[in-house]
């Protein structure tokens, strides 16, 4: 291998690492956010419980995605995997919002405005 092509390969490798970092951060957070929103609307619990459970689980989802992105054999494969999952979740979320009952009291104890969290 000439030094020139070696340098080029090195640059490519660095770009791939950067790509994975971006994909892990953006894809990880995006997937976790979509999953949280979807679960908040679809979990068979009261509204407050569904949101709480979904939020509690969201960070596990994010860590899983990050580990997957860095473990995948290639950046393209990782991107396809994360993109596909996000697309699936996004589609399901779109359906869930479309099918959701018209705005009004949720399945919980009814609308209750809140006060600020204790300092």
């Amino acid at each position: 291998m000439t030094s020139r092509s070696a340098a080029k390969a090195d640059l490519l490798a660095r770009a791939a690492v950067l790509g994975r970092v971006v994909l892990a951060a953006g894809g990880g957070y995006g997937t976790a956010a979509l999953a949280t929103a979807l679960l908040s609307l679809t979990l068979p619990l009261t509204r407050a419980e569904a949101v709480t459970a979904a939020t509690l689980a969201s960070f596990v989802v994010m860590v899983g995605v990050v580990v997957y992105v860095f473990a995948a054999r290639s950046l393209v494969r990782a991107a396809l995997g994360v993109g596909g999952t996000a697309l699936l979740l996004g589609g399901a979320l779109w359906l869930a919002i479309g099918l959701a009952p018209a705005p009004g009291p949720g399945p919980g104890t009814g609308a209750r405005p809140g006060m600020s969290v204790p300092a």
């Binding site: 908040s40 407050a48 949101v51 979904a54 939020t55 919002i97 949720g106 809140g114 006060m115």
Partner: peptide, 19 residues
Amino acid sequence: MPWGVTAAYKGDMQAFFAE
């Protein structure tokens, strides 16, 4: 990760906490 509250409460965090 406020997106659950965004989806289910239209972002009304106070309503969520009270509920």
